[in-house]
Amino acid sequence: MSLGGQLTGWGTALSLSLTLLIAGCSGSKSPDYGTFSGSVYTVKRGDTLYRISRMTGTSVATLARMNGISAPYTLQVGQKVRVSGSGAKSTATASNKAVKSRPAASVAKSPAPPVGQRCWRWPTSGKVIMPFSDSDGGNKGIDIAGQRGQAVYAAGPGRVVYVGNQLRGYGNLVMIKHGEDYITAYAHNDTTQVNNGQQVKAGQKIATMGSTGAESVRLHFQIRYRATAIDPQRYLPRQGSSPSC
């Protein structure tokens, strides 16, 4: 469940992206929170460390340090999480009432970047069987059908920042950071062929297609700009062609 501190240095940005990945996968939201006992919070289904941070006013970094939780900050239902400050319970109570009286605050979305700002390549070939949707609970990437063992390629040059299967619903997952603003994610892989911290080139083979965490063989592919999911098909070239930028 721990990545052993390999993502230290920009873990907050990555944890936010992972939190959003989980939210996009679950497709459901719950209006209430877990329970408090003094300064200990009991995790309920759908909770994330970021959500608990917003509710209690304790930073994600502080919550992670106090509870020995490493990126990608996976929580289990019923897990006890210590929060700082004696006012945590009253803060949570106030937040609970606020949530029931108005819609929960959402993470501010970054404006979509212009097409052509970066050159992207298709991560694999195949029919898009599930398009992107920015609606609540919608698909925050595209799902591409293919054959088991089919090559999966890096959509652009960057550094591998996550390789693992700790995120429920994504199977074997690879994430690549491209500069300061972009992260791409490649899920449901059969095998992965890169390591954390590895620099990769655009078009380099990083995995093989599979069905881990999915009902059929497919690649779930996401592009995130400043943690906000954007429609990959808007930025990718026509399938079978090279990027023109």
Rank of each mutant, 00 (worst) to 15 (best):
M175D: 00
G169V: 03
K177R: 15
N195I: 07
H178M: 02
Q204N: 11
Y186N: 06
A185N: 12
A185I: 10
D181F: 09
G179K: 09
T212H: 09
D181L: 14
Y170K: 05
Q193A: 06
Y182P: 06
Q198D: 05
T212L: 01
E180N: 15
S211N: 10
G179T: 04
N172A: 04
Q198K: 08
N195S: 15
K205P: 00
Q166M: 13
N189M: 09
L173S: 05
A214M: 03
Q166W: 00
G213P: 09
K201Q: 14
T208G: 05
A202G: 15
N165S: 09
I206R: 03
Q204D: 10
G197A: 06
K177V: 12
G210A: 01
G164F: 12
I183T: 12
V174P: 12
G164M: 05
Q199Y: 09
Y170M: 04
V163L: 06
N195G: 15
V163D: 07
N195E: 15
I206Q: 08
I176C: 04
Q166V: 11
S211L: 01
T192L: 11
Q204M: 08
E180D: 14
A185R: 08
N172V: 02
K177A: 02
Y182D: 03
V163I: 13
I183D: 01
L167F: 14
D190Q: 15
A207R: 07
G213T: 07
S211F: 12
G179N: 05
D190L: 14
A187T: 13
A187M: 10
R168G: 08
Q193S: 04
N189E: 01
A185K: 02
I183S: 02
R168W: 14
A187E: 00
L167R: 13
V163G: 01
Q204W: 03
K201D: 08
E215P: 15
G179M: 14
T191H: 14
N196L: 02
A185L: 15
Y182Q: 06
N196W: 12
Q166K: 12
K205H: 03
G197C: 07
G164Q: 01
Y186K: 04
N165E: 11
H188P: 07
D181C: 03
G203N: 11
L173Q: 02
V200W: 04
A187F: 01
N165L: 10
M175H: 10
N189L: 02
R168C: 08
A185Q: 09
T192Q: 00
M175I: 04
G210R: 12
M175A: 11
H178F: 02
T208V: 07
H178N: 09
Y170H: 13
Q198F: 10
N189R: 12
H188N: 12
T191F: 01
K177Q: 13
V174S: 00
D181A: 14
G213S: 02
E180W: 13
A187Q: 00
G197L: 06
